[in-house]
């Protein structure tokens, strides 16, 4: 029996889809059988970020309405044997997917995969309710901005009310020099407000945008810090104790990583 993890944030544009794509790909890299599920009906993106847009034949609404079986709608990734995508419908709206049909789909996927990563739409309305139903765990993505932290807090409250285990936090798009100058919220401040466990921090990295535009998740490129950050997050999901990524600039960074590895 697999585990369903929903990736949510409340606010739009903080990196839910990017995080879903990269965490899913990283878990696949680590040998797990993974299915990515896009629940953002009408505004689907996950297929674009994964570079699988042209392969969609059936989508999640087709499965929900009985147009096809789940297996027919799964799109195999072009890079990894064990990675699949269940795409959202682009021509329908959020109401086309109900809580009941989502639960049924997630249950079926859990019998076939190790991890199901559910990409949640922005907002806290119907689409959000549908996306979190059937999930065993939740990951909340935020960025070091007041508005994003505020929305993350709201979402954590809603998840608590749904009796899900405490959500895990990803702080995305950190700019070390801005944090250092005090121009950006500091990681400790954010955890102080949200008071949930930190799953990982991801530095702001231009390569992430480049990768998303090329349909290549950043984790497949080992030479970027964001890539390392997502790999670490995947390892923490599997239960490994991985130290937090150092945000120091280049020269101290490798020295520090070596030191940490040497210690363990």
């Amino acid at each position: 029996m697999g585990e369903a993890i929903v990736v949510t944030s409340g606010k739009g544009g903080v990196g839910k889809t990017t995080s879903s794509a990269n965490i899913g790909t990283a878990l696949a890299l680590l040998g797990k059988k993974v299915c990515l599920v896009d629940t953002d009906i009408g505004l689907r993106n996950l297929d674009v970020v994964m570079g699988l847009e042209n392969r969609i034949i059936f989508d999640i609404v087709d499965v929900a309405t009985g147009n096809c079986r789940v297996e027919q709608a799964l799109i195999k990734d072009k890079r990894f044997e064990h990675l699949f995508l269940l795409a959202a419908a682009q021509t329908k709206d959020k109401l086309a997917l109900s809580v009941d049909s989502m639960q049924m789909i997630v249950r079926k996927l859990k019998s076939q995969f190790d991890y199901i990563i559910i990409d949640c739409p922005a907002g806290i309305e119907h689409g959000f309710r549908v996306a979190i139903t059937g999930a065993d765990q939740a990951i909340v993505v935020t960025t070091p901005e007041q508005a994003a932290v505020r929305d993350a807090d709201r979402v954590i409250g809603l998840l608590e009310a749904e009796k899900l285990p405490p959500a895990k936090l990803i702080i995305n798009r950190i700019r070390p020099h801005m944090v250092k100058n005090g121009d950006m919220l500091d990681i400790d401040d954010i955890i102080g407000i949200l008071s949930i466990d930190l799953l990982g921090i991801v530095p702001d990295d231009e390569l992430v945008i480049k990768g998303a535009n090329q349909g290549e998740p950043i984790v497949v490129k080992p030479d970027s810090k964001a890539s390392l950050a997502y790999r670490n997050i995947a390892r923490r999901i599997l239960g490994d104790a991985v130290p937090l990524l150092s945000l120091q600039e280049e020269d101290g960074f490798f020295k520090r990583m070596r030191k940490l590895i040497g210690l363990r």
């Binding site: 505020r150 929305d151 807090d153 709201r154 954590i156 409250g157 809603l158 608590e160 008071s195």
Partner: peptide
């Protein structure tokens, strides 16, 4: 009787 709440009261609550 006072109302006692234990935990984090989050945005929107």
């Amino acid at each position: 009787a006072p109302y006692v709440f234990k935990g984090t009261l989050r945005s929107g609550q």
